[in-house]
Amino acid sequence: MSQDLQIVAYCCEHCAYAAADLAGGLRLQYPPNVRVVLLPCTGKVDPLLILHALEEGADGVMVAGCLPGNCHYLKGNFSARRRVAYVQQLLKQIGLEAERVEMFHLSSAMGSRFAEIAKEMTERVAAVGPNPLRIPRKEREP
């Protein structure tokens, strides 16, 4: 089942994107469900960006930005963290699990951490199941 899951990873080019690159360079194994989207900074993450990914059928969305205090643009990662928390509240109101969205912090040197995050997020999304928005209601109900 977890093979079919799709997780969109909005990654900052100064940290998480480079960490993903490093994970690849180190030949680290991590679940193939994560689709990386490059952002100049996680401060670019807008609630709508996350909602659209879920509306279009993504099973989970992870936002990966710099370590606290290390943002290339000073506070973009903190803005992203607040927006992710806001979207988690919106998801509860909509009727989706808040666990589908999460914020992570890492540096460009943390290739193995990226692999860990990818695994953690995949397991977390697998626990709540596929996004019900891409499965017709009839099939969802036993």
Binding site: E55, Q93, I94, P132, R137
Partner: peptide, 19 residues
């Protein structure tokens, strides 16, 4: 405009989940 788009997406998603 941003909030209108968010509310529209929320309503679409919630109504779809409710069948």
């Amino acid at each position: 405009a941003r909030e209108a788009a968010i509310v529209a997406a929320e309503l679409r998603m919630a109504s779809k989940l409710e069948g």
